[in-house]
Amino acid sequence: MTQNKIIDAEGIERILRRIAHEISERNQGTRNLALVGIPTGGVHLAYRLSRIIKEMEGNQVETGELDTTLYRDDLPLKGPIYRLKRTDIPFDLNGRRVILIDDVLQTGRTIRAALDAITDLGRPRNIQLAVLIDRGGRELPIQADYTGKLVTPTGNEEIEVRLRESDGADEVIVREKKPDEKPKG
């Protein structure tokens, strides 16, 4: 299978630093912010952003994780074929500026589910979306506020984000699609 590395470890680090600056600029600082990662890639990225913001601004931004499986719109059709992950948001979301973080944005369905899930947990002042890769192919009117890199793969290509916390290395690769691969959110 051919594969092509489009972002390396340094590239991911630079993107996260840039996004951290953008978040801080747009929100006039990082007070009253909360970072919420979508498992599994988004959670790792959320904790990294939190660390970068701490270095940059000196304050600790509260960080949590949000499993969207129970809110998916394809569950009634397919049944519970997805293994549940963890939702752990040990702070109040009411009145917060929430930055939702995912590794890849494609159809927008995961983010739709995440918005519903957040609504059940509280009423943030606003919700913003940060993604490492926007690979196009939207099925819902959802756009990211902070985008690492825009990638447009061809029909039989797939984007894979590998992070050292779960995959042992930091890289984004474009590779040929496996036969039965589902689109990512």
Binding site: L70, Y71, L75, L84, R86, T87, A117, D120
Partner: peptide
């Protein structure tokens, strides 16, 4: 699976649409 679902019962709104 029960471990993931337990958290729902400690929310203010104890319901998911699944």
């Amino acid at each position: 699976t029960a471990g993931s679902l337990k958290e729902i019962s400690s929310r203010d709104i104890k319901k998911v649409p699944t």
